[in-house]
Design a protein around this nucleic acid. Sequence first.
DNA 1: TAACCGTGGCG
DNA 2: TCGCCAAGGTT
Length: 348
Amino acid sequence: MAEKPLSDGLLRWYRSHARALPWRAPPGKKPPDPYRVWLSEIMLQQTTVAAAKPYFATFTERWPTVEALAATASEDIMAAWAGLGYYARARNLHACARAIVADHGGQFPSTETELRTLPGIGAYTGAAIAAIGFGEPATVVDANVERVIARLYAIETPLPGARPEIRKMAELLTPEDHAGDFAQAMMDLGATICSARAPDCTRCPLQNRCRAARTEDPGKFPFKAPKKTKPVRRGTAYWLERDEAVLLVRHPERGMLGGMRALPSHGWREPAADPVETPGDIDWIRYGTVRHVFTHFALELDVVGGHVLTDEAPEGEWWPIAMIEEAGLPTLFAKAVTLVAAYRENDP
DNA sequence: TAACCGTGGCG
DNA sequence: TCGCCAAGGTT
């Protein structure tokens, strides 16, 4: 006798256990606004729900439509994205919004294939928007789905090598109807029950169909290739002030943190081994060191400060220190600002 | 293909 | 304290 589709039980579980999220329609309901689906999916790339939520609220308040977003200056979008990380997402967000308006009449395309031609939309996001925003039977595979499927079938091939095998199983499991709810159900299951560190199989609606659940340690799936250790880099950031309480801020277009405002700095973008000397013609204050971990290296950034007397503007803009919060600095430099503020609090 | 690209939370 | 991890995409 044929077994019932696994999706039946999962969808039933989802109808009573779906997380209520600002960008989401309740199970079984009409898909939400594709603009909101798209915006949420971009924000959620490699990002937790908790981190994305306040940004989603801010963006939808300031820019309720894709037309509004497309008409906005890039600088404003980048500043609003500050702190969320992976800043290429914000650059692509703007490019995608403009492409939707310029080439698609302001409407998101509904198919995975068309969506994937847009900036910032890859295999996962294209499928997610098609399924969740348009009800298309697209197969959505993210890290949650990978984990759930690796456990369902006790796949011992380590990631990323197991991806083709996992995708095949995901395609077989995806139902023709309610593919959007199915995808969100898989992700909710992965986020709340079949979690990475501590799966709670006793609460799982798929427990009786799961091979890993019958093993001693279901949490050991999926297997993963060993990670490389992160090198530590060192550099210096400069708090350069003029008498009018303004601070020199730069705006590099390329490289790390490209498109974001930044404090003048050097040394850390290259894998330099030695501490960097600071120029000797200014009476420097040493504020301390900021530590920050990026995706592929850790950073120790010495923060030094000095007064600039010249009227000549070095490369960059003079930003009022009282308004530094509005500069949209990425977290690395926001930490440096905090360090300087704390130093002055204690030693004014 | 593998390197590059942020950040915050959790065990 | 520290490594792992998260609704990945681009080059």
